[in-house]
Design a protein around this nucleic acid. Structure first.
Lengths: 130, 130
DNA sequence: TTACATAATGTTATATTATAACAATTTAAT
DNA sequence: ATTAAATTGTTATAATATAACATTATGTAA
């Protein structure tokens, strides 16, 4: 569960937009959508995004340079994320699997090193596109 | 194991450079390094990179926008990749774990869907930086 | 070996993603 | 109230990536 944070004005505006979006949003699409609310510059968007990622309210889909709201209430550790991405329609779904997250958190590399932070992106076809 | 491909001139030049590099290389760093060999434009680099990724000779580190040569000879499926990334020195190592790749290839999401393609990036501190 | 399709190249321009630098303002904790 | 930390606003620019089009090379089948 996330530590509660009071979002600032810009953070709240941008989080609300991403949270309402059915698909991941790109930074400049966000910018375009919040210009009527007074957020005029890319940096204002990126700063809010950085903070929202940091506190775990949103995640970045690295392979797509896009952002989605976190809907994974069982998420114990921020920055331990897994997604499925449809290669046809680009639908992205956050995966919340206790088994998967335990497996990855306990995975040891050949030096015996464990990692609490990771990002996993699965690629395939979603139900609709199959 | 990779299907053998004969690389074209540009692909070979760029692959050799990445292959020799001890760390992931970024596209414009590659461009700078191959200009003396006649590759002058970003697009020439990106086209070679796209092809090299497609045939599995290199991988893209998505969170870093950088490319490394594949040294994972046990890699059965191109585009099923795992890396560890040091958050201090940015050292990147490809992980070749049969257990991990089997686990991920057999992982089923809540719809019962399996994925043969994935990209996993672990973040932490490398041996040196620990 | 010619014809044809496919892939790769070269080139210019431009789109997209992201950060640097600095001043001003707000917020939260003494 | 004072002050440190975080956030905001703003301009400029850096870094990453693709569009569009003309040309050349390569592989394959008649």
């Amino acid at each position: 569960m996330h530590k509660e944070h009071t979002l600032t004005k810009n953070q709240q505006i941008i989080f609300d937009l991403i949270d309402k979006s059915p698909e991941p949003m790109k930074a400049y699409s966000i910018l375009f959508n919040v210009q009527k609310k007074g957020i005029k510059a890319p940096l204002q968007v990126y700063r809010a995004l950085d903070k929202l990622v940091e506190i775990g309210k949103i995640h970045k889909i690295e392979s797509r340079n896009a952002f989605i709201a976190c809907h994974n209430s069982s998420c114990q550790v921020a920055n331990a994320t897994a997604f499925s991405i449809c290669e046809v329609c680009e639908k992205v779904t956050e995966i919340s699997s206790v088994g998967l997250s335990k497996y990855l958190a306990n995975f040891k590399d050949k030096d015996g090193m464990k990692y609490s932070k990771y990002n996993l992106e699965f690629f395939g076809l979603c139900k609709k596109c199959r």
